[in-house]
Design a protein around this nucleic acid. Structure first.
Lengths: 117, 117
DNA sequence: CAGTATCCTAACCGATACTG
DNA sequence: CAGTATCGGTTAGGATACTG
């Protein structure tokens, strides 16, 4: 008797058919890697991220930041209690384990632009 | 006078706000990296891919394979002219440039399963 | 400044039946 | 065997106005 269904991987309530899809579940989507790319080497405030990502909408940026925070990749630090607010986003230690990967993703994109376009 | 809009990257008719998003445009989505992961070291037939990815539907697998082929990452080779067909999918030379990245994506997923779940 | 609220569209993806 | 056709559901993401 062999198992027809390869064992699924589980993380944070989600199931993934392989280790590659688990990673993509956390950093996939249109904007997550872009956010992580901009936070790779520095903390940024909400509006700084907006300027770095001119085509994202406020709502989408907000949702994606929240998702990354929930997955433990980002931390959100609030510096003021009253408006105008100051909030900084930065990678957690867990998020920092992604730095080499994000760099590789960016590098491959660069390679494509240089050599194949 | 400074440019408000950072220069967009273009590849195959799409525009991307940064090099990381270009990469994700090609390998993002729920299934593409899983397909590439399974084709990293061997050619596979359609049904072999289906067995390796038990939770994907025929339609979705077909659409994703077509998209990867259109982006030049996969090649599709047909060995018979009449049913039953034999078709093999494999990485193109361009697709092979992704191998280290796919491996890194898979490795990070493994790391998460081992250490953070 | 840093978001929410509301509404809407499009893309993605699944289930199932059918075909060359 | 290797898909396509059809239909439908879910979710990601965009536009814009508003708020603590």
């Amino acid at each position: 008797m062999e198992s027809e269904q390869p064992k699924m991987l589980k993380f944070r309530g989600q199931e993934y058919p392989c280790c590659a899809s688990l990673t993509m579940g956390l950093i996939g989507g249109k904007w997550k890697t872009v956010i992580l790319f901009h936070l790779m080497h520095e903390k940024l405030r909400y509006n700084e991220l907006r300027k770095a990502m001119p085509t994202v909408t406020e709502r989408t940026l907000s949702l994606q930041l929240k998702a990354l925070e929930e997955d433990g990749l980002l931390k959100r630090k609030v510096y003021t209690s009253k408006p105008p607010l100051k909030v900084e986003y930065s990678l957690t230690d867990f998020g920092k384990t992604l730095i080499p990967l994000i760099q590789s993703i960016a590098d491959w994109g660069d390679l494509v632009v240089e050599k194949y376009s």
